[in-house]
Structure formats: structure tokens, C-alpha cells
């Protein structure tokens, strides 16, 4: 019988642990939801940059309304859509802090579109993590401004028609034209290589803030198996086959001048 020697265990190098920037609170997202991945990526980057203790997160309204329970830093819960304005207030009075908002497409691209565009135009030195899963998740699956043409939602039970419901908004393409944006990228939380690219983009979006370069936003195409009415695997396929073609991945703005554009 070989008992595990605790002294030996202490000598092992941990390869995978919970980032310090995440609390121990178990996440209550639906099975296979990619919010967990996005939270973790942000937390890893905060750890890596060593900024957790001067970071303030601004939580939004949507499925990620509980983000403040998961990020191990000070948090402010903003009213629906107002997160970039709230982040502006915090950053202006505490310029040494690292401020990020975490918003879904209902919050950012619908009710709060004005706030994000004007925060960008003012070149607010904040970081925005934008989760685009093309549906209003928290209120149970209604059409979002980002829902794809033909997408079945609870308010478009026969599929989104662009004649009646309008065209899906591409937020990165809108913001690309705004002076004041230092970093802008769209990534997908699908295949592992995409997740690694997403992590890199989040890293850069925080670096932009640390360098005082201006407004940074990373859009993360995400899956919502629950309200896409798909299994997790089907949802990932849909992400690749339907979301990515409509919302091209890429780096749209890079203050260091190396934005590759649409990929």
C-alpha cells in the first residue's frame, strides 16, 4: 500500500488551479454555457498582469448579472446597459485602477449601445468584455439585436425576419470607425485554438488600459445551448458554421499598429 506522502505533494508543481481572481463560488450558469470560460480567461489575465487588487469589475444585467459573485475583486452592479458609463465614473476618479465591464449582447448591443459607443468615442481607458451569444438568455431566449436571420427565439417563433425584426448588429464593425478605440477584437469561445486566441485578445485589451492607450473591447462569440435549443456539441457547431461567418473573427484595431483585421 503506497500512502500519498503530503511532503511529496507539496513539492509537485500545480499545473492547473483556480485563478486567484475567481472566487470559490460555484458558477450557476447552464450546462455548457461559455460564460464560465470567459470568466476564467479574464481572471487568468488579471492574475497574470498582477492587477487583481486594483481591479474593479462592472457587472451588467443579463445571465452574467451574478458576475460579481465570481470575480474576486471589487464589483459594481450597473443598471441595464449602463456599464460603460459606470466604468467611466470609476476610472475617472480612480485612474490607477483597472476597470472592466462584462456585458452581454442584450446589455451592450441593445439597451446600452449608446453608452458603449460614447465611452469609446471619449477614449475612456476601460476594458469591455462583450459576450455575444445572439440571444437574450436571462429573460428566457428572446430575440437580441445580434440574433441571426432566421434564428428561432421566443419572440421570433418563426425565425427572425430582417423585414420585421431588423438586421443583426455587428458591434466590432460599428466601433471600428470610432476614434478613441485602442483595441478591438472578435474571438470565439469554440475550439481550443479559438479559446487561446480569445485569451490573448483579453490580455491585449487589459494591456491597452494599463498603457493608457484608450478604449478596448473584446467580443467573444459564445454559445447558449439552452436558448439555441441545441446540445452543447450542436451549439459549438452552430457557433462555427453560423455565428463565425456572420461575425468574422479578427483584430479590428490595435493601438500598437498591428491589427490584422478580419481573419
Amino acid at each position: 500500500m503506497s500512502a500519498v506522502n503530503e511532503a511529496d505533494l507539496r513539492e509537485l508543481e500545480p499545473l492547473y488551479t483556480r485563478p486567484e481572481s475567481l472566487t470559490e463560488t460555484p458558477m450557476r450558469y447552464c450546462p455548457a454555457c461559455t460564460h464560465g470560460t470567459a470568466h476564467r480567461l479574464v481572471a487568468e489575465v488579471l492574475d497574470e498582469l498582477g492587477v487583481r487588487e486594483r481591479t474593479v469589475a462592472v457587472a451588467s444585467v443579463g445571465c452574467s448579472v451574478y458576475a460579481y459573485e465570481y470575480f474576486n475583486c471589487d464589483c459594481v452592479q450597473a443598471a441595464h446597459g449602463r456599464a460603460p458609463a459606470v466604468a467611466t465614473g470609476i476610472k475617472r476618479v480612480r485612474p490607477d485602477s483597472v476597470v472592466f465591464t462584462y456585458q452581454g449582447d442584450g446589455d451592450l448591443a441593445s439597451i446600452g449601445l449608446a453608452e458603449v459607443i460614447h465611452a469609446a468615442a471619449r477614449a475612456e481607458n476601460i476594458t469591455v468584455i462583450f459576450i455575444n451569444n445572439a440571444v437574450f438568455g436571462m429573460t428566457q431566449g428572446q430575440m437580441a439585436p445580434t440574433s441571426l436571420p432566421g434564428q428561432v427565439t421566443t419572440t421570433t417563433p418563426r425565425g427572425r425576419s430582417v423585414e420585421q425584426g431588423g438586421h443583426p448588429l455587428r458591434v466590432c464593425e460599428l466601433l471600428r470607425e470610432v476614434e478613441g478605440v485602442a483595441y478591438l477584437a472578435r474571438r470565439a469561445l469554440g475550439a481550443p485554438r479559438q479559446v487561446r486566441a480569445a485569451r490573448k485578445a483579453i490580455h491585449k485589451a487589459f494591456e491597452a488600459q494599463l498603457e493608457g492607450a484608450g478604449f478596448a473591447l473584446v467580443e467573444l462569440l459564445s454559445i447558449c445551448p439552452t436558448f439555441w435549443h441545441k446540445s452543447p456539441l450542436e451549439a459549438l457547431k452552430h457557433l462555427e458554421q453560423a455565428m463565425v461567418p456572420y461575425y468574422p473573427l479578427g483584430e479590428y484595431v490595435d493601438w500598437r499598429g498591428s491589427a490584422g483585421g478580419e481573419e
Binding site: 428572446q142 421566443t154 419572440t155 421570433t156
Partner: peptide, 13 residues
């Protein structure tokens, strides 16, 4: 949509 009235518009949609 807004909780707790969402369903009404959803059903109406």
C-alpha cells in the same frame, strides 16, 4: 422584455 412581464409580450409575439 423585462422580468416579470416578459412572458406577456413573448406570448403575444
Amino acid at each position: 422584455p423585462i422580468t416579470p412581464s416578459t412572458e406577456a409580450v413573448q406570448i403575444f409575439a
